[in-house]
Design a binder for these strands. Sequence first.
DNA 1: TATGAATGAGAGTTCATTCAT
DNA 2: CATGAATGAACTCTCATTCAT
Lengths: 209, 209, 209, 209
Amino acid sequence: MARPVNEEKRLERRKRILKEAVILFAEGGYSNTTTAIIAERVGVTPGTIFQYFPSKEALYYAAVLEPLADIQVKSLACLQQEGTPGALIKNMVKEQFNDIYFYTNELRLAQSVLGQRIRFPELTQKVLESIKVMTDAIESVYAEGQLMGEFDKSFSPAMISRSYISFLNGVGLTLGESIIHHPEWENLKGHAYYLFAPIQPKEKLEESK
Amino acid sequence: MARPVNEEKRLERRKRILKEAVILFAEGGYSNTTTAIIAERVGVTPGTIFQYFPSKEALYYAAVLEPLADIQVKSLACLQQEGTPGALIKNMVKEQFNDIYFYTNELRLAQSVLGQRIRFPELTQKVLESIKVMTDAIESVYAEGQLMGEFDKSFSPAMISRSYISFLNGVGLTLGESIIHHPEWENLKGHAYYLFAPIQPKEKLEESK
Amino acid sequence: MARPVNEEKRLERRKRILKEAVILFAEGGYSNTTTAIIAERVGVTPGTIFQYFPSKEALYYAAVLEPLADIQVKSLACLQQEGTPGALIKNMVKEQFNDIYFYTNELRLAQSVLGQRIRFPELTQKVLESIKVMTDAIESVYAEGQLMGEFDKSFSPAMISRSYISFLNGVGLTLGESIIHHPEWENLKGHAYYLFAPIQPKEKLEESK
Amino acid sequence: MARPVNEEKRLERRKRILKEAVILFAEGGYSNTTTAIIAERVGVTPGTIFQYFPSKEALYYAAVLEPLADIQVKSLACLQQEGTPGALIKNMVKEQFNDIYFYTNELRLAQSVLGQRIRFPELTQKVLESIKVMTDAIESVYAEGQLMGEFDKSFSPAMISRSYISFLNGVGLTLGESIIHHPEWENLKGHAYYLFAPIQPKEKLEESK
DNA sequence: TATGAATGAGAGTTCATTCAT
DNA sequence: CATGAATGAACTCTCATTCAT
């Protein structure tokens, strides 16, 4: 009874629609991106979009939330590996700064939702929740790191995690198109970790005295 | 000469239109905000808008750029006062974090432009230029501060100034509506200055050795 | 402040739209009549329709109910004049059979609503209510006529009034286009009154014995 | 020869499609009833409908005309039995008022066609022809009844038959959903026969004098 | 100068129909 | 034969802009 082949085809096409939608919505915004243009890019006719998504808005929701969920999973995974809190965070920062490059459109899309909170209140809530999940995870790892003497104990973990997320988003927002080729890109990545106020080995030594 | 009273009236009305446009565009985005709604909020009829702005797009440009220029002037003024670089920057940070609250709509509007670079390329350029003016100014004050031993010399001023601006924008973007009532708000403000890697008096002493 | 001229113009145009809508909806049904066609008939552009009616459905409602209300007022007026119940009813029948001719479209429109009860439930209710107002009015006049010996006392007034209304609607429905030129038209009108089971003078005499 | 079993299956399925189509078209009208919904109700996929009917319009035609033909056959059969004209007509009235209940959807469907004469002109003609066949049949039986002194001779048979058919249709149209439970239902049925102006035995006696 | 009705191009969405599987 | 995804024309409705008043 099952028709695995067709089901696969459907998912494949759904994915392609979503992919193009992410690009176009990110570049042009919600209203300026017509369903007809998305269809054209995908290589189907206007009606086909609506076989996969009940409405343009539903497509927008999916284009915003589905990639965000993927990114979140990846980021959280960084924090659940073996290693000291400091190493985990360092690794996460590296990973996420790579993501800024690989998921530029996906992240800008989420950011633009935050810029239209009145218009898409539900979606805004979900994006903010997704951010909260991230900051909470960072917070607890960071607190542990403080206990282990890897981070300066004088900062509130809640503040630190929020600072970092703000910084991360701000970087994606304010840097130009070719973000990764920016002359200060590598330095910025380093400064992201500095935000966590890590204690240098030398200082660590001193502190432990 | 001319008709100064009427001229005044015109400017007054233009200002009111712009003010409402900023609020509505910031809340609802460009396409979702109709000229009719703006007119209604201002208390005029749809046609009137077009007596003050040649098109909806022109109104949007003005709504984005004019407040941004004002904020820029204020911020730059902070850096041109009397005082050590460290004091100037500390003051600027304080001022700008206040602005996040007082000019929430104006700043979000500018941010949302950055989220639609393809759609409003010219406007995007102008916003990025405005950001560049700011980072450049910060950069030179910061470099001076480094020379004076107020900031850690190991960081590139270009990177530091960009980091700060990214942070500033990210905070506005990712914090909730009532940003200022966020429990970590005050700490965040403090961390913004930490980002500049200021040298503590004690350290300053050590360093100067 | 009032702009009576414009207000008048608006009402005038609203009336014209409604008039064309009645004709087209009656001839082609709801779905088959496009707002563009209505606009074209009226001599305006498609958008204009929506300055006078918020939606196609609202226009349909108005096209069905407003003429129905007018017809009802006229019909009820017949029953509120001076005269014996028999004379009033006779006059009403005459009036209403004229209306079948003059308001063919309006009445067919109302009938077609009754043919789509599931689709327009609210509208159906209102049309049925309008019919009930009519049957109730007839019922009470008829009952009075029975008391005065003008009508056969063996029939229930409720049944008689419903019979008549059914007959009236059925005539409009089943007779051809040029209803009034039907060879039996005049006879049908007479039979409509026969349906009330009036007592002939001779019979009246007999009965009164 | 051929494949009678499959042929039977085909007919069976065609019947089911038609049955659902009648219900749905009657409840929702032509345009509001999609082929997809019909297919779903029948339990097949959209494409299948078009294996049995060349187009939606053809299905509509069949849904209107085929049941109408059945009903007509039944009604005509009433008039072709043994018995006096009066008895035949009395029986037919009884039969047809039952049909109003049993074939509510089929009859409403036919009525709604009459409400859209411009849109379905051919279909309208066929429905009107079907009505004419009925009135003609009644007319001739009625005329015979008049000759036999069962009906008042002063009425035109053409008018009487049309009156009755109008009444019959009007009753179906204007009475509510649960037509048969209407408190006046039984009385209405009786009045339908009264419309034929039957002569009471006593009167018959008098008249025959 | 302000008005606000009219405009008309263009948006999202629906759905009868087709056809490769 | 049945399927059901794809089609694409056609629909309703929106809204920036114009212009006679």
